[in-house]
Design a protein around this nucleic acid. Structure first.
Length: 226
DNA sequence: GCGACAG
DNA sequence: ATCTTGTCGC
């Protein structure tokens, strides 16, 4: 697939400017109905080792088809700063995607979409960079607050609101006993459509299966480095 | 000034 | 993300 070079900011100020510019290109509209092949992205890292990213090419009707991997040496990593995660992890994800035998129709990313201080979480950043529909599924909250209490039952969801009460996504209960997930549109998908998409994904445990596989594979691939 | 803070 | 043991429960 076509992958444009990813600019590495020389400073946080530069990253901020890039972020603001790209946020203006995010499209929060569209349906993922009919999408069949996606790429699920997750990464693993330990100090002293490279950041290891995994892209699982996943057919929604057949299951996992291929695992692409990408690694970036620790010395080359942008520092982790809340709100700037994409500048650290995106380069590794792009390498993992480049290793896939075919381009996915959409991306499922471990992290926020537009539920972000400047509307450009890693899912949105990757979506805009590659001009692909994308959805963010984060395991914890970065920005915003739930509109109300989240029911315990599996499948329940409440909107995630910005400080100005703008809906940015959903707090979603994928499993009855599990802590919620934070689902938000990345790019080229609407608010409700992003939730509908995640709800339709096969989910055996807390994380949707494609992301769980990416998570497991990233962990074992990193461990295999030594 | 204080608290919050994806991975 | 990772550092970390046992422990509760299906």
């Amino acid at each position: 697939m076509e992958i444009p070079p990813f600019p590495k900011p020389g400073s946080l100020e530069e990253a901020l400017a890039l972020q603001k510019a790209l946020a203006g290109k995010v499209v929060v509209a569209g349906s993922l109905e009919g999408v069949r092949r996606i790429a699920a992205l997750d990464a693993s890292h330990r100090r002293g080792k490279p950041l290891l990213a995994v892209a699982v090419l996943y057919d929604l009707e057949r299951g996992p088809l291929f695992v692409g991997k990408g690694a970036v040496p620790e010395e080359e990593l942008f520092p982790y700063v809340p709100g700037f995660l994409s500048f650290r992890e995106a380069p590794a994800y792009l390498l993992a995607l480049k290793a896939l035998p075919e381009a996915p129709e959409a991306l499922l990313v471990d992290g926020q979409g537009i539920a972000h201080p400047r509307g450009l979480g890693i899912a949105s950043h990757l979506g805009v960079h590659l001009d692909l529909p994308s959805v963010g599924v984060a395991k914890s909250l970065l920005y915003g607050r739930p509109e109300g209490p989240l029911p315990q039952e599996r499948g329940s969801a409440v909107r995630l609101l910005s400080p100005e009460d703008r809906p940015m996504g959903y707090v979603y209960r994928s499993r009855a006993e599990a802590r919620p997930l934070y689902v938000s549109p990345g790019h080229r998908v609407g608010l409700e459509e992003a939730l509908a998409f995640v709800r339709a994904l096969p989910t055996r445990f807390r994380l949707p299966e494609p992301l769980r596989l990416a998570h497991l594979e990233a962990g074992r691939a990193l461990k295999a480095l030594d």
